[in-house]
Design a protein around this nucleic acid. Sequence first.
DNA 1: TCAATTTAAGCAAACGCTTGCAAAATTCAG
DNA 2: CTGAATTTTGCAAGCGTTTGCTTAAATTGA
Lengths: 348, 348
Amino acid sequence: MKATIEDVARVAGVSTATVSRALRGLPSVTPETREKVSQAAASLDYVVSPTASRLASGKTSTIGVIAPFIDRWYFAKLVSGIERVSRSSGFDVLIYSLERLDERERLFQHRLVKERVDALLVCSLPPSMDEVRSLQQMNIPVAVIGAEVDECNSVRIDDVQSAKTATGHLINMGHTRIGLIAESPLQPLSFTAPRDRRDGFLLAHQEAGLNFDSSLEAYGSFTIESGERAMGELLSKAQPPTAVFCESDEMAFGAISAIHRHGLRIPDDISIVGFDDHDLSKFANLTTIAQPVQLLGETAAWILLEQLKEPTKPRTSTVMPTQLIVRNSTKRLGSDRAGAVIGAFGSI
Amino acid sequence: MKATIEDVARVAGVSTATVSRALRGLPSVTPETREKVSQAAASLDYVVSPTASRLASGKTSTIGVIAPFIDRWYFAKLVSGIERVSRSSGFDVLIYSLERLDERERLFQHRLVKERVDALLVCSLPPSMDEVRSLQQMNIPVAVIGAEVDECNSVRIDDVQSAKTATGHLINMGHTRIGLIAESPLQPLSFTAPRDRRDGFLLAHQEAGLNFDSSLEAYGSFTIESGERAMGELLSKAQPPTAVFCESDEMAFGAISAIHRHGLRIPDDISIVGFDDHDLSKFANLTTIAQPVQLLGETAAWILLEQLKEPTKPRTSTVMPTQLIVRNSTKRLGSDRAGAVIGAFGSI
DNA sequence: TCAATTTAAGCAAACGCTTGCAAAATTCAG
DNA sequence: CTGAATTTTGCAAGCGTTTGCTTAAATTGA
């Protein structure tokens, strides 16, 4: 029923070795032979068995993606970018949505992974040094997205600088009591981006000679709900902030919701700046830091593919630019706002 | 360096056949032997090579997911559900994000797919009869999510009924000029859900003895932007609708934005109902139809896994329940609204 | 024209597992 | 106890490629 390489060889009148080489475009094949083989393959509707090919060659033509929450905006975008460039290079992409680190460790160490993928893309949660070593031993290239890791390729943004810019924007607008909605330090997963963003936030204060009142820090977990809760806490303070920097747009959405629930208005009573430039942020009129998420994924995949083609390629560390997008969720402290906001998402 | 089944066999003092059977928990192995083998395997840090196993057995332990836009909320949630249950059964999941149908057809027909996956999950875009046949011939089970397809498993919601309920809600509130933001009939991909939702919308009118003014229909493409554009058109009519049903929450978000941009208020001037119950809808205070997206994915994966275990299992067609969630984006026509809306997302 | 190179093609041994069938060991019935 | 039935194990033939090595053919240089 299904044609094998032997069938092709027979029809083309050559050996299977030649078929294999011809079909893969290897150099040592005459144009005529190659043509003959192609014809034979086409006539038999032949397609190589990736499985057999994998066993024989040890290459899987697959790249693995490890990401914590693939249903979240950020990770979904990332995966989408990765998938696009991988597939266009003929690579399959295998998704590992691992929330628990022990699962990941198991995956890495038992070289389970070596049998399945040629290269690995790790999103946001940087691998430990042990894990990196383990991967190196198996000789599988790794790229980390959203974090910098020794001896790994990395593709990321400058979270410190970006957060500093965002906070600076608030400071420039005259705000001095600025709240921070950050990732909870209690949560078990050790993302580095939130930490960096917090650092940037503090740095902006420092450089402006401002003192950060640490009671103005509240914690969330990068979800809308948690952002709402955190903002609730901030609003219940004796002296609430006049502006808030949220480490993600989704938390910002929650914060906005809480603010309205408290009968306050944005940006009249409180300014908000987020981080990510979520698809909805434009419509929510949220001032934010835009990061090219899909592009991060595409770039990381591309780097890995290059490295597979040419194993001697040196590791790279790419930092992509971000951009402060000023919309209508922030205003100069004390200034009157000129009329009603046009183009706002909300106010249902 | 890495242990093979032969190493285990040697250490355990049995044949490779026995190791294979023991490790896979097949019945014809004594408990003692099994134990011996397990010990040996553990001591060698052995793990089977999926590749070799695939070649020998013809099973890939992988399920493929074909989805058009994996970075969209709906599909990301779906994939997340699929991934969870697949992985917990030891199956890998391979993502095919195919926007173009010809790519998909190629994938199906050249039995490329047979070599890669044991079963296939097709999201939203129902396969053609040719494609189904092709898959059947290769003997690979298929489940379709979000559409009903002959001779395939399907997991979906009742789009007609749900849309009818949503529209009915508007009608019950006294609205008679109801707009529809539907998927453009021009776009090349033939989703069935939008069509069904439109049917439900019309049906509700019909059953209420209402006439639908077809000039109140505008088109989008399930994105926020397109929803905004569509709503813009509706608002520019001489006599705009007093309520609008959007075929997705994301288009509803766009519509909301457009309405505010026009200086109108929701629900005072216009009522909006969406479809999906997007993560943000609760915060946007959007009345909508909730569908259990992640559960759809989980169920579909589960069905497929069952069918792989027991190939004689009959095909199933599952319809999951949806629910109208009334929030603050709809109100009775002509009634005064009691005070300001609490908990709204927007009004930045 | 002929040896020396270079290039193209073929041989056959992996790759690491699964599985049908046969053999051995065990259990059972009488 | 013994032969039959049953259970457990082993043998070895695949599964469909790739690739190192060898051989044959073509090209080159003198």
